[in-house]
Design a protein around this nucleic acid. Structure first.
Lengths: 216, 216
DNA sequence: CCGGTTTTTTACCGTTTGGTAAAGGGACGA
DNA sequence: TCGTCCCTTTACCAAACGGTAAAAAACCGG
């Protein structure tokens, strides 16, 4: 709503060149912020990677801060989309739905590591620029899906599990491959099969936790 | 070995006041670095929290960089101690040893969140100041313990599991509570029982993965 | 109390950084 | 040809930052 980058934050129709340049700035900023953190990134780096001068960047965004906020806002929905879809496919067994969610999150960790690291860096430092979003956007979604999982457990379609901590561990395990890529890359012996083995491992980890025990 | 902070890095005996002030600086730096990241932290902040002037801090450490490196070095052993102990208790069943390791790591995440976040921030940005340690210290230890776990699996004392990714997921899940504390704190409904429920959940998650299936 | 060493402070420097002012360029209609 | 609107550049600034010089203060054995 308010991540407009044009000089005045009005509700202008947003010209073609504006859209293109803002996209380029955000793309460059994602590179720089995710690699160096907010404080470690500089406007000059962002400008250079976006192929324009620093004042030109500041023509499209009011400040370094607003670039960061715009990025976070723009990425939030993409990042939470899989969770939003969880349990919306009619007739899908809960275990299948959860395992599909987990697999999708793992895929995203490998395919969108910059986004993962951007969020990780922000939360790591206390989420100073994301607190409103955590409360207004993530919290309701989180509570809704926790209630859904709790229902599934009560119906006996899942093994007994703490929904909150289940989601925490899903996020932790999947995002680990993006956020700690430097470590994983230094330790993993066989890089070629790493992704496939990660998928197999994560699948087993959560399947054995979630598959309902045989009923009495 | 080389994290000496005195003006010259010789092998001086290190006086009482030197030890005290260096400890105070490192304590303050742990606060500041873990909260703001390397680039986000300033010498003035560290000096203020240590209760001394900026030049006085630089009397004990050559540079901001050397404080960070000294911190990393000093913390590395404490952080890896539980992994080093894994499997050294004679006669302990492998499953018990691993579960004890996991519980200890989770405790550390709650009791030493600053240390966890310091490492996380460093790795998140590509581990620029820790790469040597990853290769020389962590890698051999990691390989050794992976071999140990693989042996346990082959002996049928653990369920089939990928040792590398098992350790990754243990680290991911346990450290998540420290590294993403801002998020967990914003989402968790009942803060009072959070730690206990985390322990129960993590226990179940890994026990169900690792407990050997009934033999044929 | 003294002389030398260690520790701490004051004052300062050069660079980097986020941000601004203002002029220039290009496209387009009248 | 002129004006004008949107975009871009050049030149610049004040603050913050890591770090240094050098003098003052505190410490300590004799």
């Amino acid at each position: 709503m308010a991540e407009d980058g044009s000089p005045e934050g009005g509700t202008k129709p947003l010209s073609r060149i504006q859209a293109r340049n803002r996209r380029r700035i955000l793309e460059a900023a994602l590179d720089v912020f995710s690699q160096a953190g907010f404080r470690g990134a500089t406007l000059d780096q962002i400008a250079e990677r976006a192929g324009m001068s620093k004042p030109n960047v500041l023509y499209y965004f009011d400040s370094k801060d607003s670039i960061h906020v715009a990025l976070l806002n723009a990425l939030m929905s993409r990042w939470l989309a899989p969770l939003e879809r969880l349990g919306t496919r009619a007739g899908e067994p809960p275990l299948d739905a959860l395992m599909a969610y987990i697999r999708r999150k793992l895929e995203m960790s490998f395919e969108m590591p910059r986004e993962s690291r951007l969020f990780a860096g922000e939360v790591l430092q206390g989420a100073p620029r994301m607190a409103p979003h955590l409360d207004s956007t993530l919290k309701p979604l989180f509570d809704e899906k926790c209630a859904l999982i709790r229902r599934w457990v009560d119906e006996g379609q899942l093994a007994t599990v703490d929904p909150e901590h289940l989601l925490y561990s899903i996020w932790a395990v999947t995002q680990h491959y993006a956020d700690f890529e430097a470590q994983v890359g230094a330790l993993t012996a066989d890089q070629a099969t790493a992704r496939e083995r990660a998928a197999t491992h994560v699948d087993a980890l959560f399947f054995r936790l979630l598959a309902p025990r045989q009923k009495t």
